[in-house]
Design a protein around this nucleic acid. Structure first.
Lengths: 143, 143
DNA sequence: TTATAATTGAGAAGTTTTCTCAATTAAAGA
DNA sequence: TCTTTAATTGAGAAAACTTCTCAATTATAA
């Protein structure tokens, strides 16, 4: 199921872009993958240090930036202004964030694809990109 | 057209919530309204000081938080991690941000309204809220 | 195996945001 | 209009967050 279980595949993703597949970057990716929850940077740092104790905070910042650029992770904006990160869904889709348990659920459709043309006609603005996050309660948390 | 031209109306919006209609809050609202552009907090602070020279930065932070809670302003998340603010569109809709001139254009439809039920069926997550920003180039900037 | 350049760790530095508290002032009632 | 009350402000300190610097390390390709 997951890209994290194919180390060679991941190595290629890095190397094709001239980036190195370092233990620190893999550790960050593993933390995001294993939790399936969106995590603050300091939470990620703590968990990464359980794998690689001497990892610096700056390395976590840099790794996350790299992973986002490779679309292996997504940056989540929260209302309180803090940023969190989560494992990226496969393909173009948007994260659904459970506000109870912080779980990240994928939804593999993008409502903007059909809409972009109509927005362009109505407003004159040609949409290049968009940013969408959904918040709700997942099945388990609704009981 | 605009709420800013009806001072009494705005005063009521504040007072009904037990909040005061202060010159500082009105100045922040006026800056957002007059520019029609999304502005960083320090840019807002500079412009507010042209109206009320002794306004402190903390007051700008607090005013923006208040205006967002009253849905008179919206918080914009930018990729570089900085936050900006813009005048809120009327009713529930989402800001379209021109990446050339920083103008804010309104689009008075919400693609999520129709979609929420289907998301719930497919993923089991009941959507409570969502956050959507669109980026593109406005008519004038496409020439 | 070696050479090269990307990456890291650690702390300093820079930014952004929040907090504190006395002084001010908007709002509501007399 | 005047007074009372509690919300709000300004200023700077403090806290939190993010980026930078640079010598040392190390993944990669040859």
């Amino acid at each position: 199921m997951s890209i994290i279980e194919e180390p060679e595949g991941i190595k290629d993703i890095f190397n094709k872009r001239g980036l190195r597949c370092t233990p620190q970057r893999l550790a960050v990716l593993k933390v995001l993958h294993d939790t399936q929850v969106y995590l603050s940077i300091s939470a990620i740092h703590s968990k990464v240090k359980e794998i690689l104790p001497y990892t610096g905070l700056a390395t976590v910042y840099r790794s996350l930036e790299t992973l986002v650029s490779l679309r292996l992770a997504v940056k989540v904006h929260l209302d309180d202004g803090c940023h969190s990160y989560a494992i990226a869904p496969q393909g173009h889709c948007h994260p659904i964030l459970c506000t109870e348990c912080n779980r990240v659920v994928e939804f593999a459709e993008c409502p903007l694809e059909d809409l972009s043309n109509r927005i362009s006609e109505k407003t004159g603005v040609q949409i290049d990109t968009h940013f969408l996050q959904l918040f709700g309660k997942c099945e388990e948390c609704r009981i």
